[in-house]
C-alpha cells in the first residue's frame, strides 16, 4: 500500500518479476545526474531491481551483479549518457572509494546506482533517491522509496504516477 506522504512511497511486491518491473519503470524516468541508492540484505532484490532499471533506461548490456568488479558501466544507444552500477559492500576506507574513481563516476552526464550505499554514506551526494528493500517472506519484498532533495521528490511523484496511474 502506498503511504500518502510527500517524498515517500511504500510498495510490496510479490515476485522477483514484479520487483524488476518497478525498476524498469524507474529506469525510464532517470535523467543524467540522477543517483539511486539500493539498500537491502543479500537476496532482497537489489540486483533484480537494477536489472529492470537497466532495461527501462535502455542499457545495451544486462545489469548483472557488480559485486566482483565493484563498478559496472553501461551505455545506451540514444545518447552518450552512462549508467554506473556499484556494489559498495567492500568499500571501507577513503582509499577504497578513491580507487574506484567515485568523483568521475558522479558526473552530470551519468546516472549512478549504488548497492550497499550505507557503506559509503559520507561520500554520497546529499540529494538522491533512497530505496530500502526488505525481505518479508519467501518472494515478497517491501520497497520503501525516500526522496532526498527537490529533484527526487519530483522523480518519485512521476514514478508514483506511472505506477498507480
Amino acid at each position: 500500500m502506498p503511504i500518502l506522504k510527500e517524498g515517500e512511497l511504500d510498495i510490496i511486491t510479490h515476485s522477483a518479476e514484479q520487483t524488476a518491473r518497478l525498476g524498469t519503470r524507474l529506469g525510464t524516468l532517470l535523467l543524467p545526474g540522477d543517483v539511486i541508492c539500493l539498500s537491502g540484505d543479500m537476496g532482497a532484490g537489489k540486483t533484480v531491481f537494477s536489472a529492470g532499471l537497466g532495461r527501462g533506461w535502455g542499457a545495451t548490456t544486462p545489469m548483472s551483479s557488480p559485486t566482483f568488479n565493484l563498478v559496472h558501466q553501461h551505455a545506451r544507444a540514444k545518447d552518450d549518457v552512462l549508467l554506473y552500477h556499484l556494489d559498495c559492500y567492500r568499500l571501507k576506507t577513503d582509499e577504497d572509494v578513491e580507487s574506484i574513481g567515485l568523483e568521475e563516476i558522479l558526473g552530470p552526464r551519468s546516472c549512478v546506482v549504488f548497492e550497499w550505499p550505507e557503506q559509503i554514506e559520507p561520500w554520497l551526494p546529499p540529494e538522491h533517491l533512497w530505496i530500502n528493500l526488505g525481505i518479508m517472506e519467501a518472494l515478497r519484498r517491501n520497497l520503501v522509496f525516500k526522496a532526498n532533495g527537490k529533484r527526487y521528490e519530483h522523480l518519485l511523484n512521476e514514478f508514483r504516477g506511472i505506477t498507480y496511474g
Binding site: S39, W116, E118
Partner: peptide, 9 residues
C-alpha cells in the same frame, strides 16, 4: 519482518 534497521543491515 522486512523492516530493516540500517545499522543492522
Amino acid at each position: 519482518d522486512g523492516r530493516r534497521n540500517r545499522e543492522e543491515h
